[in-house]
């Protein structure tokens, strides 16, 4: 059988295959270049970037839970100007689209970062993080209120012509309400989900494990929650979805695609298996061949029937 078509379109970002990286788990790409040929991925999503440099939260910033990881990095990053000077030239050397994840404490900061990236070039997509649970200002506060989420979306959209992906939080009562609001505000695509707010306590010290007390839960433990969110949002809005949350294998990724994700991001699994992205891609291709499916797009949302 001929090689199946793996290419997907995420709001104008053409990916040669549906596999990308979850922001914050893959650095700026180069960190994994010894293990993964980035040009084999569908796209590269890099670490969250803010207008000004951020130091991040106190250590410990990571704690293990059964089949999961809690993190409270706190958006440590060198700021957008540094990213443009030091990483964008590398992004431009890649053959795959690079999506920069952005965050801000105010609506204006999101817009300013988007504008700078727009001018810099070399960025194929902007993923707007309105769902970080680890920062005091901004982050999840924007993502848990549909009106605020729409406002951020509008501000970013009016600052750039680059496709805009809004990354949603699962820490809400009804994720479809936020999805509908940002869709109406002009978002080109959606990423879901960000991490789930959680914590761990050390019974020896009788104190919270994380320096920042609470953190975001990721890894296989969150997969059912993420899959449910993708399922609900696929039914609620027309936008392409990048599904993520606990994807470690091609089987996990295929569940997300069947639930309605047009692309999938591998996150925490990179820490466990640095070649997870490539193995997921290969597994999806094998599945298509074995099942006689010529085009990955035929599988997107197929579990909904009709």
């Amino acid at each position: 059988m001929l090689k199946p078509n793996l290419a997907v379109d995420i709001g104008g970002i053409v990916m040669q295959n549906p596999v990308t990286t979850a922001s914050g788990t893959f650095g700026f790409g180069r960190e994994y270049s010894e293990y993964v040929s980035i040009n084999e991925l569908g796209a590269l999503v890099v670490k969250g970037t803010t207008l000004y440099p951020r130091q991040g939260n106190a250590v410990p910033r990571i704690a293990e839970t059964p089949a999961g990881v809690l993190n409270s990095i706190g958006l440590q990053n060198p700021g957008v100007d540094y990213l443009i000077e030091h990483y964008v030239p590398f992004f431009k050397s890649l053959q795959v689209p690079v999506i920069v994840n952005i965050s801000g404490e105010t609506v204006e900061e999101y817009a300013a970062v988007a504008e700078k990236l727009d001018k810099a070039g070399g960025v194929a997509g902007i993923e707007v993080n309105i769902s970080c649970p680890n920062v005091k200002k901004g982050g999840m506060a924007f993502g848990s209120d549909p009106a605020m989420a729409a406002e951020v979306t509008k501000a970013v959209k009016s600052s750039t012509t680059i496709p805009v992906i809004i990354k949603l939080s699962p820490n809400v009562t009804d994720i479809t309400k936020v999805a509908e609001a940002v869709a109406a505000a002009g978002a080109d695509a959606l990423s879901l989900i960000n991490t789930l707010l959680g914590m761990a306590i050390d019974i020896t010290t009788r104190r919270p494990v994380l320096g920042n007390v609470m953190g975001g839960l990721s890894g296989p433990a969150v997969k059912p929650v993420a899959l449910r969110a993708v399922w609900q949002v696929y039914k609620a809005v027309e936008l392409p979805i990048i599904g993520m949350g606990g994807i470690s294998t091609a089987e996990d990724a295929l569940e997300f695609i069947l639930a309605g994700a047009a692309a999938v991001a591998v996150g925490t699994a990179n820490f466990v298996n640095p070649r997870a992205t490539i193995e997921v891609k290969q597994g999806i291709e094998r599945y298509l061949i074995e099942n006689g499916i010529k085009n990955i797009n035929d599988l997107i949302g197929a579990a909904h029937g009709n």
């Binding site: 788990t25 650095g27 960190e31 670490k47 991040g56 250590v59 990571i62 820490f271 640095p274």
Partner: peptide, 25 residues
């Protein structure tokens, strides 16, 4: 320090280092 990726991508295992009198992770 408690570590995640081991390759510098996740920024979990930070420690404070002084550069020009300023403490940075």
């Amino acid at each position: 320090e408690k570590m995640g990726c081991g390759v510098g991508a996740c920024l979990a295992c930070s420690c404070k280092i002084k550069i020009n009198g300023e403490s940075v992770y």
